[in-house]
Amino acid sequence: MKKIIIAGLTLLIGFGGWLVYHSTSEIPENEHLIEKMNDKLKEQNHFKKGTLIKKVQGRQLIDDRHLYIPVVFENGSRGKSLWVDGWFKWKLVRVDTDGSPEVWEIDPEKPSTFHVIYHLEGVDSMDLYYREELYWSISNGKENFYQPPIQLKKEVAFDKRNYGAVKLPEVWSDIRAKSSDSRRPIMNLGYITYGENQEVISPSPSSDTAYSFGGNEKLSFVINLNKNDIVE
């Protein structure tokens, strides 16, 4: 009987822990978010003075456990902050002083969880591109390999919000997930931003510093393209 009770209790505690771990904590008020981020930033030894966060632009839940919060710094530049829900509370994992698009690989093994996060100013719309370069290999012993070039596009309209987290289109993540051959090049995402009159806007060079606060979140590049890089 004793054994059964112990086993029962263990199960209960395990299940309880699992529930707590998987329940979404409440997102703190904006002031608290800003305070937390600024405290963490000040702890950084290569932290530059005057680049504290002044404003939180919004909050976008990516899933129950991943949160993207676009921020504005005291000097006016736009940035990104990433939060992950841990035990009972949201943990800050990263602050980026640059708002240009990046891929947050929620589960690096599953491209269907990838999100492009951005926070841009003076931009009206953005085209995201999925590209794979033409690639081939001929080798003795191993079979030949040929990768036809791919270029797919997704248009992202900026309504009133100049930030967002866009899930990779299913087709993109599907192609990516299926490509198991190690000879295939790594995923190549790019973007072009447009102004009000559909003119291409190149991002002004900014000093991009990313502060990491633990966790093992994986982020990857989205390259700024110009019209010569793409097929139209």
């Binding site: 036809p148 070039p149 139209e232």
Partner: peptide
């Protein structure tokens, strides 16, 4: 050929 004019065998 430049990127913008490329054609491919398997489109």
């Amino acid at each position: 050929t430049p990127h913008s004019k490329r054609m491919t065998l398997f489109p």
